[in-house]
């Protein structure tokens, strides 16, 4: 996918909304699938992973944008990775301090935020070419879009896989959990379902606008 040149467009509504909806990282760009599929067994896990990623995304984009005139282009990727890795380490400590149970549930995927291509993609395509404010807004939009995606997956998988949403039982004690939903294949099924829904919705809109 070729990203449009996003240099210095100033702040438009789309700076923020692009990531939330039109270029949603999960449903439209299908990026960062590793954490998306792996940790979304419950809504809480999805939400936490989304927020952690959003934090790294916004902070590293801010820093990248601040030093964008300083960094020689030969070492820019290395610089971005160092910055991203720093914020991931920060998040890693913060989550451990907040809740060890959550830390165990998310496992290695916190550290793996480093290689989430959404973040490097934003740093390279947007933050490196824009002033701090639009860069942060854009990153925030992407982060929110990613969180929505993870929440949508985690919600469905928790409802079917455990009969709960955010730990609140929905169907009573005799609910039959759909074991497959908390296993890896369930992630693919639910993601496929959401992609289908999004594609169908986009097609319908296109047809309507065409008519």
């Amino acid at each position: 996918m070729s990203l449009p040149n996003q240099a210095d467009q100033g702040i438009t509504f789309d700076t923020f909304m692009e990531g939330v909806w039109r270029q949603n990282p999960v449903f439209v760009m299908v990026l960062g699938m590793c954490p998306t599929l792996a940790v979304t067994v419950s809504a809480v896990n999805g939400l936490s992973m989304g927020v952690a990623t959003m934090f790294v995304l916004v902070s590293s984009c801010l820093l990248v944008s601040l030093i964008r005139h300083l960094v020689p282009k030969e070492v820019r990727i290395a610089t971005y990775i160092v910055i991203i890795a720093t914020f991931v380490t920060l998040v890693d400590y913060l989550i451990q301090a907040a809740s060890l149970a959550l830390y165990e549930a998310l496992g290695a995927f916190i550290q793996l935020i480093v290689v989430n291509c959404i973040i490097l993609g934003r740093a390279e395509a947007h933050a490196a070419k824009n002033p701090p404010l639009p860069a942060m807004l854009n990153a925030l939009g992407m982060g929110i879009g990613f969180t929505i995606g993870l929440l949508a997956l985690g919600g469905v998988r928790e409802i079917l896989g455990a009969g709960q949403l955010f730990g609140v039982s929905l169907f009573g004690a005799s609910f039959q959990p759909w074991v497959v939903m908390v296993l890896p294949p369930g992630g693919f099924f639910v993601l496929g379902g959401w992609l289908l829904l999004f594609a169908w919705w986009a097609r319908r809109k296109e047809v309507r606008h065409g008519a």
């Binding site: 039959q176 759909w178 497959v180």
Partner: peptide
């Protein structure tokens, strides 16, 4: 295969 994975007990 789906129900085998989803409802292993039943």
């Amino acid at each position: 295969a789906f129900v085998q994975a989803a409802f292993p007990v039943a």
